[in-house]
């Protein structure tokens, strides 16, 4: 499997799109530093961008690479290697390329600004961990959508729908629900509901670490109040890791049963 990961990675890191992606983070983070010298403010602003952009790009990359390598996958399937190595290897290649591209783009400006000498290093690490986890989670979801749907338009369409649902609509629906049922105790419902949205979890994770209560929102506050900072972060991180593993086991399940 490591050979497939290596070549899938080698193919992707030469892709123009990935350079754009790294360049985008470099510019964005650089620009944020230009506007504000306060590291924690830069981290919060960057977080807001990451929570929107990482999932979208990872979903689209996952879908795109799966579709683009369909015919090549046939060639690999004819080799004496097990099926699951091919698909898991391809996925891990994409996800790792995206994660590294994100790490470089967001990391280099921080290193230049002297993050290692400041007290913000752990806050910054949590931001990077969240971005990397989101890259793995959403590229797996994208890869999975493309694997299930042979129709490319539908695959891309569904990827956009998933992104809209989790990154945009979810918060709105959540607030509506809270307002609607405001007479009831909703804390546990809120914790349960945020577990189903990795983007929300990542936000909670970062804000708990930064301890910015004004930005936590309802779910963040509930996590903080009921679980405390440490166990709240622990729960958020654990569920994020489950989110990263679950779609991968689905990729394995489907790839073993699919015709090519």
């Amino acid at each position: 499997m490591h050979r497939i990961i290596r070549y899938s990675f080698a193919d992707l890191i030469r892709s123009r799109w990935l350079y754009f992606y790294t360049g985008f983070y470099l510019l964005l983070t650089g620009a944020l530093f230009f506007i504000s010298a306060d590291l924690s403010k830069v981290i919060v602003s960057l977080m807001n961008a990451i929570l929107f952009i990482v999932p979208l790009v990872a979903l689209l990359f996952g879908v795109m690479v799966q579709y683009n390598t369909r015919e090549f996958t046939e060639l690999l399937l004819a080799q004496p290697i097990p099926r699951k190595s091919i698909f898991l290897g391809q996925y891990l290649g994409i996800a790792s390329a995206l994660a590294i591209s994100f790490l470089l783009g967001a990391g280099i400006p921080f290193i230049l600004s002297g993050i290692f000498l400041s007290g913000e290093i752990w806050n910054f690490s949590i931001l990077l961990i969240s971005g990397v986890l989101l890259s793995y989670i959403f590229s797996a979801l994208g890869y999975l959508l493309a694997l299930i749907n042979d129709n490319r338009i539908r695959g891309f369409g569904l990827a956009i729908v998933v992104w809209l649902l989790l990154a945009v609509i979810y918060d709105g629906l959540f607030l509506l629900g809270l307002a609607w049922f405001s007479d009831y105790p909703l804390e546990h419902v809120a914790i349960a509901a945020s577990i189903f949205n990795p983007i929300d979890l990542a936000r909670i994770l970062i804000l708990l670490k930064l301890d910015v209560s004004a930005l936590m929102g309802y779910t963040g506050a509930v996590f903080n109040q009921f679980l405390g900072t440490a166990s709240g972060m622990g729960l958020a991180l654990t569920v994020l890791v489950i989110w990263a593993v679950f779609p991968v086991s689905l990729i394995r399940f489907i790839s073993l049963r699919k015709d090519f």
């Binding site: 070549y7 193919d11 683009n68 015919e71 090549f72 046939e74 060639l75 004819a78 080799q79 004496p80």
Partner: peptide
């Protein structure tokens, strides 16, 4: 499959390799 050579119908490979 080590004893089979197979030529797929459509030749498309990773573009950047």
């Amino acid at each position: 499959r080590k004893d089979i050579s197979y030529l797929p119908q459509i030749a498309r490979f990773p573009e950047n390799l």
